[in-house]
Amino acid sequence: MLIVLVLFVAGVGLLLLGVHKLHAAVPTCYGKPMSPGDVCEPHTTGSFSEGMPGPQTSTYREQLDNLTSGGWTAIVIGAVLLALAVVLAISFTASTLRERGD
């Protein structure tokens, strides 16, 4: 039953983390907050080696999408862990009831 508790706590934690990340996301450009319409220009120092992509500009929307995608990932994984905890709890309960009935 300990695994059910661990899965439940992890699932709830990930759900809360994901929701917080979606609501608190503020895109930044080199540590400075961005606002809609801003474009983050890369700072280039030195040369880039063969095959390595060079830095690219990114818009406010692109930065925000990068931040919030992690929030959605945490929410989905948290929901899966909660569903798994419920399935395991039902399974453990059913097997315990069967053992007591025999």
Score class of each variant (00 low, 15 high):
60 Y>S: 05
63 Q>L: 13
46 G>N: 10
72 W>I: 12
76 V>D: 07
85 A>K: 09
33 P>K: 01
50 E>L: 11
39 V>E: 10
78 G>Y: 04
89 A>V: 03
47 S>Q: 12
71 G>L: 06
71 G>N: 08
77 I>H: 02
33 P>C: 01
77 I>C: 08
76 V>H: 06
88 L>I: 11
55 P>W: 05
37 G>P: 02
53 P>I: 07
39 V>W: 01
31 G>L: 00
62 E>Y: 06
44 T>Q: 11
78 G>S: 09
70 G>V: 08
46 G>Y: 09
33 P>L: 02
84 L>S: 13
50 E>Q: 12
84 L>M: 13
58 S>F: 12
87 V>T: 10
61 R>D: 15
53 P>V: 10
37 G>T: 06
44 T>R: 09
47 S>V: 12
48 F>D: 01
84 L>R: 03
84 L>P: 02
92 F>H: 09
30 Y>F: 05
46 G>I: 07
77 I>Q: 05
30 Y>A: 05
84 L>I: 09
50 E>A: 13
87 V>W: 11
51 G>K: 11
79 A>N: 02
80 V>E: 00
40 C>V: 03
67 L>M: 15
54 G>P: 01
45 T>W: 12
90 I>Q: 10
81 L>Y: 08
71 G>Q: 07
72 W>E: 12
71 G>P: 07
73 T>M: 15
72 W>Y: 15
33 P>R: 01
79 A>K: 02
68 T>D: 06
69 S>F: 13
44 T>L: 08
70 G>C: 06
45 T>N: 14
86 V>Q: 01
92 F>E: 14
30 Y>C: 00
45 T>P: 01
77 I>R: 03
34 M>Q: 04
75 I>W: 03
82 L>F: 07
59 T>C: 06
65 D>M: 05
78 G>E: 06
79 A>S: 13
87 V>S: 12
89 A>S: 14
75 I>H: 04
70 G>T: 10
90 I>H: 04
81 L>I: 02
87 V>M: 12
83 A>K: 03
36 P>W: 01
